[in-house]
Amino acid sequence: MPGRLTRGFALATENPDERRIGSAVGDGPQDELLKSLLRQLTSLTEEIRNANRIQLHRIMAEQTGRALADPALAEAMSTLQGLSEARRRQVLFVNAQYSAIMLNHQLGAIDWNELIGHLRVWCVNGVFQQYWEMTGDHRKSLPRDSLEARVGRAVDFMLDELAEGAEEWWVVGTPDTDPSG
């Protein structure tokens, strides 16, 4: 048995790649290699999560498209009561746009201030205002520290300021829109 180990060691050290690996292991950069692999795995996991978000958004967008084209599907898709066919389709469209803006933020395509900026533009839209009012109960069930809940509080704040006629409602980054909650 000792002869095999010696022979195997001699063969391993004759290969320059194996010598580098052996010396790296011997020098202690295993931790760095493991950290690098962990960073790569974390990055890959995030890429997969984002790909799944995009796919789910695509599925919902396709379903919303079908609902916008067919009033019977629009009625089946909507949880909101007492809307005309035209208003229901408008609200479904606003919801799809809101979801797309949120997805852009979740994917890192836009930062918090850009997210709030996009939503500020929507706040002046009457259909969006009605949609937001009608979906308030939906947001009450969200965990307080979730992105949706923080965005909800920021939009509520902007709509309140807009309703009061405050000129500052347009300013991005008010303390009440802090992303940390």
Rank of each mutant, 00 (worst) to 15 (best):
P2M: 07
G3H: 14
G3W: 03
R4M: 06
R4I: 05
L5G: 12
L5S: 13
L5C: 09
R7E: 13
G8C: 14
F9W: 15
L11G: 00
A12F: 10
E14W: 02
N15G: 08
R19T: 02
G22S: 14
V25F: 11
G26P: 07
G26E: 07
D27L: 10
G28R: 05
P29G: 10
P29L: 13
Q30F: 01
Q30Y: 01
Q30R: 03
D31Q: 06
D31F: 07
E32Q: 07
E32T: 14
K35N: 09
S36L: 10
R39Q: 05
L41H: 08
T42P: 01
E46M: 12
E47A: 09
E47W: 02
R49G: 11
R49S: 15
A51T: 02
A51I: 03
N52P: 04
N52A: 10
R53Y: 03
I54Q: 10
R58G: 06
I59L: 15
T64G: 08
R66Q: 14
R66C: 06
A67P: 00
A67D: 00
A69T: 08
D70V: 04
D70W: 07
D70K: 06
P71K: 03
P71E: 04
P71T: 02
P71R: 03
A72K: 11
A74P: 00
M77A: 06
M77T: 01
S78I: 07
T79A: 06
L80P: 01
L83Q: 01
L83K: 03
S84Q: 11
A86E: 15
R87K: 00
R88V: 04
R88H: 05
L92S: 07
N95D: 13
A96L: 04
Q97M: 07
Q97R: 11
Q97L: 11
Q97W: 04
S99W: 12
S99V: 08
S99P: 04
A100R: 09
L103W: 12
N104E: 15
H105C: 10
L107W: 01
G108R: 11
D111T: 01
W112C: 14
N113A: 14
E114F: 03
E114T: 07
L115F: 05
L115G: 03
G117W: 03
L119M: 04
W122H: 13
V124A: 13
G126H: 13
V127F: 02
Q129H: 11
Q129C: 03
Y131L: 11
Y131W: 11
M134C: 09
M134H: 13
G136T: 12
G136C: 12
D137T: 06
D137G: 06
H138D: 15
R139G: 09
K140V: 08
S141Q: 03
L142H: 01
P143S: 15
P143Y: 06
R144F: 12
R144P: 00
L147G: 07
L147V: 15
E148W: 06
E148T: 03
E148Y: 08
A149Q: 00
R150E: 09
G152R: 04
G152S: 02
R153G: 06
R153C: 02
V155S: 10
F157D: 06
M158A: 14
D160R: 10
E161W: 15
L162I: 01
A163S: 09
E164C: 02
E164R: 05
W169F: 13
V172C: 09
G173A: 00
T174M: 10
T174V: 11
P175Q: 11
D176P: 09
D176Q: 15
D176F: 15
D178R: 12
S180T: 13
S180G: 00
S180M: 11
G181Y: 05
